[in-house]
C-alpha cells in the first residue's frame, strides 16, 4: 500500500488521489473552502496550503505520491491560513449577524477553527450588486469568495453552465450566463446542485432564511 506522511501520520492513498482526498479519507482533514469531494479541484482559496517536502502547495490540487512528507498543522501554516481568512473577510462584506447562512457557513467555521478574533486589515467594504431577480434564488455578491463551486456544479453536475468567474484581482466577480446578466433569465432551477454548494451565504434559496434556530445550525 502506498502512503504519504501527514504531520507524522502515515496515510494510505490510491493512484489518482490528491493529498486532500487521502487526508479526508483518513479523517485528518486539512482546512479548505473551495474544495468539495467529487468536484474538479480548483485551488483558488489557498486555505489548504500545506508544505510538501519543504515546498508550499495546495493539498486539493497536488496528487499524492509515495513517501511525500506533508506538513499541515504547523504554526507557520496556521498563521498563513489565519491571514488568508482575514483577507477573505475584508475583501467582501461579511455581515455575519444579518446573514442567513450564519452558523452553517464554511468560511465562518474555518475562521472559528483558526481562532480568528479580528479581521486585522482595513475592511474594503466593496460595492457589489445583489441579484434578487429570480423568484426562488438569491445571489448576494457581498458574500461571494469566488470558490467557483457553483461554477463547477452548474457546468459539471447540472450541465447548464449558469455561472462563471469574471475579471481579475479586486474586480473579480461572479457572473451569470444570460444576456441580461440576471439569474431570472437563465434556466437555473432551485433543485440544481449549483444552488446548494455555496460554502457561504452568496447563493441562497429564497423564503428559507433563518429556518434553523440558533444553537441547532450546522456548526453551532
Amino acid at each position: 500500500m502506498k502512503t504519504i506522511h501527514l504531520d507524522g501520520h502515515e496515510i494510505p492513498f490510491e493512484d489518482g488521489q490528491t493529498v486532500m482526498d487521502c487526508a479526508l479519507a483518513a479523517d485528518k482533514p486539512i482546512a479548505h473552502l473551495c474544495h468539495l469531494p467529487g468536484y474538479t479541484p480548483y485551488g483558488s482559496c489557498r486555505l489548504c496550503t500545506v508544505k510538501i517536502d519543504g515546498r508550499f502547495s495546495s493539498a486539493c490540487t497536488q496528487p499524492a505520491r509515495e513517501g511525500m512528507q506533508v506538513e499541515s498543522e504547523t504554526e507557520e501554516l496556521k498563521e498563513m491560513r489565519l491571514g488568508i481568512l482575514r483577507m477573505l473577510f475584508v475583501e467582501g462584506n461579511h455581515y455575519c449577524p444579518s446573514c442567513e447562512k450564519s452558523g452553517s457557513c464554511r468560511l465562518q467555521h474555518a475562521a472559528y477553527n483558526a481562532g480568528m478574533l479580528d479581521p486585522h486589515y482595513r475592511p474594503f467594504y466593496p460595492k457589489r450588486e445583489m441579484d434578487a431577480s429570480h423568484p426562488d434564488i438569491l445571489i448576494d455578491n457581498d458574500r461571494c469568495i469566488f470558490c467557483a463551486l457553483c461554477v463547477r456544479a452548474s457546468r459539471d453536475v447540472d450541465g447548464k453552465a449558469v455561472f462563471d468567474i469574471s475579471g481579475r484581482g479586486l474586480a473579480t466577480r461572479l457572473v451569470v450566463n444570460s444576456k441580461s446578466g440576471l439569474l431570472v433569465d437563465t434556466d437555473i432551477s432551485v433543485e440544481d446542485k449549483a444552488v446548494h454548494v455555496c460554502p457561504v451565504g452568496a447563493i441562497l434559496v429564497k423564503g428559507r432564511g433563518f429556518e434553523v434556530p440558533i444553537g441547532m445550525r450546522l456548526y453551532d
Partner: peptide
Amino acid sequence: VAVGACAINGGIPSMRNH
C-alpha cells in the same frame, strides 16, 4: 478591548457604507 462585531469590523451599521 474591542468588544462585539461593530467594534471589530463595523458590523451592521457599516452596511450604510454601500
